[in-house]
Structure formats: C-alpha cells, structure tokens
Design a protein around this nucleic acid. Structure first.
Lengths: 295, 295
DNA sequence: AATCATCTGTGCGCTGACGCACAGAGTGCT
DNA sequence: AGCACTCTGTGCGTCAGCGCACAGATGATT
C-alpha cells in the first residue's frame, strides 16, 4: 500500500461519486484523478469503482476504502490542528538545562512560567555534561562563560553574573582578611577542578596565587558553597548568592573582569515555537529585576 | 492536511530516525525525503524534526505524527490485504438479477453456490425493469431475448430455453385442442403485455392469430402460469417447466424458432473477480445438465 | 591520530506526472 | 424532439519533482 495520495484521491471519488467532484475538492485536474484511480486499482488488482458516464460508484472494495480513509482523514485533520494549535497553546514538556548553581534564580521563573501555562510539565536538568539541544534533550539551555558557537544553536545574552571573593566569618577569625590581591600570601582558596575551570575569575585567581594555596578543589559548585561555609578557604561566589548568606564576609568586591556571562541557547528548530518563545520572553523579563547582576 | 504521501514520508523518518533509512524503505532518493519533510513542515508552520548531522529526531509534533501515521499504515495494510484477499476468498454479497420465471432453475444453482461459499449472502432480484449493472445494482444478470449490446457489459450465452404451447386439461375439455397453427380459429391465448413482449414466440403468435384472440394479457409471468392453470387460454411455457406440470397438455411441441436465448451478463469491472467467476462457472456447469434445453 | 563509514544538504539535468483541450456519451430540461 | 449541461476519457505539451553526484560533517574504528 504505497502512495497514500492515491488512496486519498480514491477516497474523495468514493465519497463524492464523481471524478470531477473529487478533482475539484482535491484541487487537481480530473485527468489526474482518473490516473490515480487506475494506478491504484492496477496495484491492488481489483476494481474499486464501476465506471459509468455519470460518475463512479464504489464497489465493495471501494466502500471498504471509503470507510478506512474516512477515519484516516479525520485523524490527519485532528493531527494537523493539534500541531498547528501547538504553537498557539503552550503545553507538553518543557525541558530547561542549566549550569549548576542557578536554581535559585531559575526556579522562580519556571514557577511563574508554569503558573501562566498550567498544561506545561517543567523539567529542569543540570548535569556536568552539556545536554545536546540538537538531539532534543532540552528546549532551552542556560550556558555560562564564552558565547557558545555551535551551529544550529541560537545564542542570546541573558545577564552577566557578578562574582566576588567571599569567606566565612570562621575563616576570617582564623586566617584574617586580605585587603587586596597583594595580600594573598598564606591564605587558602576554594576553586574548581582544573578541567572545568574555564571561568574568568578562576583564571585570574590562578595567576595571583601559587598552586599549593588552592587547597580545596571540586567539580561540584555545591561543594564550593559548603567548603566556604566550613571555613576551609576563600572562594568566588555570585554576588546575589553571597548577599543572602549572613555568615559570609566579602573579601574582595565584585569586579567587571570577573563577570561570568550567561547565555540563553536554543536550537534553531525549536526557537520559533510558541513554547520556547514564551519561556525566553519571561526569563528575560524576570532577569531585568534580578539583583546584584551587572548588565 | 493535503498530500498524504508527505505524511507517509515523515512517518518513516520519525520511525527510523534518519532520512537515508526512510528513503531506502520508501524506495526514493533521500533528497526527496528531505524535500517532503521541508514542504510538510512549511505547510504546518512547525518543525517536525530536529536536524543534526547523524539523523532526524522527531519533535513533539513529530512524535504525534508518528503515532497517528502508525495506525494509518496498519489500517491501510489491513485494507489492502482485505481488498487483495477479496479476490481469493469469496465472501460478501452476491446479487443476481434475472428475468422472472427462472427461479426454478436458478435457485438450485444459488443454493449450491452458497454451499460452496458459506460466507456469501445471496440476493436474487427479479423485476420488470432491467437492473443496471454499471451502477452496481447486481454482480450478474440473466437476460433473455436478443443478445444485449450495452457497452461495458460482457455477455456470454447460457442456454436456449425451449418453449412450447400448452393448455390445461380443463381448457382442452372446453375448447378442444388445435392440431396446428392453422387450427387456431376460435381459440383463446394467454400472452404478455405488448410492451414487454419482445420474445420471438410472442411475435410468432401475434402473427398467427387475431388481436381479439389474445384474451388474457399480463406483464407478470406468474400470472401467465396461473391463467393457463385456470384454463382461460393457450400459452407459451418453457418446456422444462411444462414437463413438471401434470395438468398441462402440450398443444404444439417446441420449435427451434421459438427458442429464447438466455445470456449471462456481467459488468466488465466485476467480471474478473473471483466471486463472479465462481458463480458463472458453477452456473454454466449446472446448465449443462438442465433438461429440456436445446443447446 | 588517522582513516573510514554514514548521514545530511544542495545544484543540475531529466523524466514522469500534471494541466489543458477536445471528443464522446448520457441525462435532464424546455 | 432538440438543446444544453455534465461527466468521463485521451493525446499532447509542459513543468514540477525526482534521481544523481558531490560536498561537508560527524561519529566509529583500528
């Protein structure tokens, strides 16, 4: 049963009873309709219609085709309206991937997004590996650092996260508080593992201090947090996060060169969809009111 | 949702995940597959797939299409097997139309036909008007008289029905029995209504006797029978039928020029079907053993 | 690390399918 | 009875859609 268009043609002929009527509905010439019917009957080895000068009347096989194709047309019409309406109403899954440590900013946005579109199922994925937008693993990704340049990805800037150097009160009590980067001698630092440390402020830190001052290293941002809290060293934190933590002391204030840009990345195939647009629009709007974030 | 072939193409792509695989299954070039997908997405205004260098992964809309088209393909496959198997197994309705008065011959054949093919529902239609094969009103028609010459009808001779002149014993007792057509004076005859009397023996009779001797006329063959039985006149009967009636007397023996040829008529669109062939074959076979029928 | 295999994507030439126009036939209307 | 309308059917010219070939890219394999 190859060539579904011929079935569709036969369906219209069976429905309307004339070749001409079917041709008009299908928007083709009636000669085309005749050719389709002939080809289909030849392939099936059975007559679907009895031909007379006033029209075509379906045989039993033709009536069988009529009922089957009737449901097919309905199902296709429903499918089309679903897909087209798909852009209208936001529904289904929405998958957002992000670098770790942004939950505090993103979750309120996702909550508002779900409030506006109750039919949406939200999934927030954060993982070490980069999720691949081009395999449909996510609708939107939040990436940090240098602007991604993968093909088929549309990248737009979100905000720049301001980073400062912080330490816990416990650390200050033990080691004192350096006044500037020239005062780092004898201090201990918390830093990312070397592989994943492509952030600008980490490179800056490695320049300023010796290797054996980097006493606590982890791939896990949550571990940096906990390490700072325990007072094992001085480390970088987003300014907005540090401002919510009363036990932390600002060692060095945020500097522009430490800023980490965040990027909204979407796949080009999904970028124009209503669902993605709705989220990206909401995210940008909310981002304007985010505190402690230099533009 | 015009162009079902593009849906079928998209279905295979969604199922297999690659354009190349779909092209191979569909038996077309992979460039064609890409064109179909592009056209369909453009018409729907939504992406069905995310493209990457190793294949296509369906979006939500594409997965929706996959499930819908999956059932469509199954339904079409079942339809095709039904239609193709339609010629293999004899089933469904079988409609036979015939001139009136042949039930005695045809019913045993139909009974045997149904015995051989229990799934068949048999309908035997006899009416004054000629059923139109080209409107699907019947599969096979039995026609009498001159060979039908309608286009699209395949006509084959069945048998020649031998007709003789008969009267009831009651009639003979009252009016006597003519020895030949020269002895018809004063006799009364049963005949068809003039419009429908295209049979050869009726024309012969009208030549031999005056109009007022045709005292009983009817369009209904069963009425001729009854009229003969009642003794109201002399009339033509098929020889095979008269031989089963002990109350009838043969007035004039059957003559070749009175023979009424019977024709098997089928529509060209239905003639090749297994169902029609099965019946026609059986009918011809049975007809060979019919009594009183000159070849 | 280098080669291979596979898949997508695009320009070009061509063929098959389409529209067009006309003929034929039947039906209904006046 | 004749006319007009509708529908099927077919030959012809044209064009859209197809196959082809090549390029680019990515992942697998050795």
């Amino acid at each position: 049963m190859e060539n579904w268009d011929e079935i569709r043609t036969a369906f219209q002929v069976a429905r309307l009873g004339t070749v001409s009527g079917a041709a008009e509905v299908l928007g083709v010439h009636h000669a085309t309709v005749i050719r389709h019917i002939d080809a289909l009957e030849k392939r099936l080895g059975t007559r679907l219609f009895q031909r007379h000068t006033r029209g075509y009347t379906p045989t039993e096989a033709g009536r069988d085709l009529l009922t089957v194709a009737q449901t097919t047309e309905e199902q296709f019409a429903q499918l089309a309206s679903r897909i087209k309406g798909h852009g209208e109403t936001v529904q289904g899954e929405f998958i957002l991937t992000s670098v770790a440590g942004l939950s505090g900013l993103l979750v309120p946005v996702l909550a508002e997004f779900q409030r506006q579109h109750p039919a949406v199922i939200v999934r927030l994925l954060t993982d070490m590996r980069i999720f691949r937008l081009d395999y449909g693993e996510a609708h939107v990704a939040i990436r940090a650092g240098a602007a991604p340049e993968e093909p088929d990805n549309v990248v737009q800037p979100l905000i720049r996260i301001r980073y400062g150097l912080y330490a816990s009160k416990k650390y200050i009590e033990t080691y004192g508080k350096p006044e500037s980067e020239h005062d780092f001698a004898g201090h201990r630092f918390v830093i990312a593992e070397s592989e994943g440390s492509r952030a600008a402020f980490f490179r800056w830190l490695r320049d300023k201090v010796s290797n054996d001052q980097l006493t606590f290293r982890s791939t896990e941002p949550a571990a940096w947090d906990a390490a700072l809290e325990e007072g094992v060293g001085i480390g970088f934190l987003p300014a907005w996060e540090a401002s919510t933590r009363s036990d932390l002391v600002e060692v060095l204030a945020p500097r522009p060169e430490w800023d980490s840009p965040l990027w909204i990345v979407t796949h080009v195939d999904l970028h124009r969809t209503r669902k993605v647009q709705a989220f990206v629009g909401l995210l940008k709007e909310k981002a304007r009111s985010w505190p402690q974030c230099a533009g």
